[in-house]
């Protein structure tokens, strides 16, 4: 019996694929946004608002990750230049998108004809935090009915976020959500995230978010 020292990251293969994805997206100048949130926070609504805000001068592709249905893909179908649906049911990873799935999806997209790729991750605040997809921006959507303590409970996903959208701001008067407490909780573990209070219902805050994305695309 002898020992072999290894010290090799189990996620190294995912990281390598993610780097490949990033290089491909860079070469086509496709700003790619990984959108993560709990189920029901409003990922699809934010994507629809984002597309409406960026169009008509921005060409948008959407990768829809979902456990089983094509409901979300159907909703965005009309507005996007290209939509690829990934059903994670039956795949090794059913609770999050991984870099391999994005690699396959990108092969099916006309990247030369796209400026922005929006990735709707599977609704979950734990698993997507572990997987780099090769995206340029990691965005977490919180929604006010979830409560302001989620950054404490799901620290990892918030720690890595480049932007945090606080959706359903129109419901703030009716739910226990203290905006200052929420932003402070994120700031405690993340010194760079940009905050976008938003209501997909009323459209509040959408313009600021869209302007930020435009700037990110322009400077890449």
């Amino acid at each position: 019996m002898r020992k072999i020292e290894i010290v090799q990251g189990i996620l190294d293969a995912n990281e390598a694929t993610a780097e490949g994805n990033r290089a491909l997206l860079d070469s086509h100048r496709c700003l790619t946004v990984n959108i993560m949130a709990a189920p029901g926070a409003g990922k699809t609504s934010v994507i629809l608002r984002t597309m409406a805000g960026l169009q008509p001068d921005t060409r948008i592709g959407v990768i829809e990750g979902d456990v089983a249905s094509t409901v979300d893909a159907e909703k965005v179908q009309g507005a996007a230049s290209a939509v690829v649906q990934i059903n994670t049911h039956g795949m090794p990873e059913s609770c999050a998108l991984v870099a391999d799935m994005i690699h396959v999806a990108l092969e099916r997209m006309p990247l030369d004809e796209l400026d922005v790729v929006l990735i709707e991750n599977v609704g979950n605040l734990l698993c997507p935090a572990e997987f780099n997809l090769g995206e340029h921006l990691r965005v977490v959507i919180a929604s006010t009915p979830e409560g302001d303590d989620k950054p404490v409970k799901y620290a990892v996903i918030y720690a890595d976020a480049d932007a945090v959208i606080i959706n359903k701001s129109d419901l703030t008067p009716y739910v226990d959500f203290d905006m200052n407490r929420f932003t402070r909780a994120v700031r405690n573990i993340n010194d760079r995230a940009v905050f976008f209070p938003m209501s997909c219902k009323t459209g509040e805050g959408v313009a600021e978010w869209v302007a930020w994305l435009r700037e990110k695309r322009a400077t890449m």
Partner: peptide, 20 residues
């Protein structure tokens, strides 16, 4: 201060194995 950076706790790697 409550303002921190996560330095450790996110690891996932194989350290070693016993073989014959």
């Amino acid at each position: 201060s409550p303002e921190v950076t996560i330095e450790g706790g996110r690891e996932l790697y194989i350290k070693e194995m016993e073989v014959s």
